[in-house]
Design a binder for these strands. Structure first.
Lengths: 191, 191
DNA sequence: AAAAACACTTGACGTAGATCAAGGTGTTAA
DNA sequence: TTAACACCTTGATCTACGTCAAGTGTTTTT
């Protein structure tokens, strides 16, 4: 039971679930352990799950047609990740999700989530409120990317997520910020 | 009643509302007419409403510290817009929303939406599903911005939204795509 | 414990796209 | 009908960053 404490606490920040609702919800959860460098999502396969990180770190990235990686998201404890487009439309994923460390994640299937959200009002509220916040962050990221220099974007990130910046490889952070690894190295050195 | 047809049809694509739910929902809606170039949201004022475009076109943009505009979103009929961060946290807006044409919009207050979403399960589902889709698009835009050239971004947009590309001024599109107006003009000329 | 792979740094160079500046055309306003 | 804008174009630079390449330290693998 306590293995779900993290996600239940997360939900409790937004809504209150009854005991039976908690039981219904936890019944659709599946705990998965993944090793560093293991792929959780791969292009060509449907991203069947919404994934919640209990422990560890995961990044989602896109491999473009010239072989360059572009990181969509970097997640640590208490973050959700998935290839949202693939998950929502049940189409083959276009992104990879890769464990940056040995990690423990909670997975929940699209159909199960939808069924429960149709039945449990509070759960629907939880996801709505959480996603609204995520959208507001995503919008902010779009603006930062088009309005700030590489250097500004880097320091903004370090300022906001100091512990993540130290935890993930530099080339991952570079590809998240839309900077080449070489340039990021130079940005760090001049300071 | 038929003045709400657009938004009710939009909702009907996601969920089914009963007649009394429809009545409850429409009771919180307020129709507003705005003239071309009029601001609907301004920095310093809280963005109180979720806005739905019935007719016309609106853009949301950020004015940076050197006076450059960066367009967050361009919306036409059946699109929602707001300064999401301001709306969700009831903090002063950082963005402008400006009518690009004389427009008719439907406005709904944060407190009213939250109250109804707490009471009407289907409405909560509607917003959840709609926002999930919006998040998936926003993620896609982040990746496009960091992985494609200006030229690719422009043609991708024209391809995807041909009618919008013709409807809004070029400098607005440029600032949406993160390109200078001069460069966009050159991209268009070489083809 | 050696070999191989991975992650980061540093230098030299090239270029996409920004900036600055000037002129042209269509639209709004007095 | 004459300004006064608003929007777009075109040309001449400039520069922030990307690319390519080589070298070093650090894990991972065998």
């Amino acid at each position: 039971m306590s293995k779900y404490k993290g996600i239940l606490d997360h939900i409790a920040k937004y809504v209150e679930l009854s005991d039976t609702e908690i039981a219904d919800f936890t019944s659709i959860l599946k705990i998965t352990r993944v090793k560093k460098r293991q792929f959780i999502i791969q292009p060509g396969f449907v991203s069947e799950y919404r994934n919640y990180i209990v422990e560890g770190a995961v990044r989602v990235f896109y491999l473009d047609d010239v072989g360059k990686e572009h990181t969509v998201s970097i997640g640590v404890e208490d973050w959700f990740f998935t290839d949202f487009h693939s998950y929502l439309n049940r189409t083959p994923a276009e992104y990879y999700a890769e464990a940056l460390e040995d990690s423990v994640i909670i997975q929940m299937k699209y159909d199960d989530v939808e069924e429960l959200c149709g039945r449990i009002h509070a759960l629907c509220q939880y996801f709505r409120l959480y996603i609204e916040k995520a959208l507001s962050h995503s919008n902010q990221r779009v603006i930062t990317n088009i309005s700030k220099t590489s250097e500004e974007r880097y320091w903004e990130y370090v300022n906001r997520y100091p512990q993540i910046a130290n935890r993930v490889p530099q080339y991952v952070l570079a590809s998240y910020l839309g900077i080449s690894p070489e340039s990021l190295s130079r940005i760090r050195s001049r300071s």
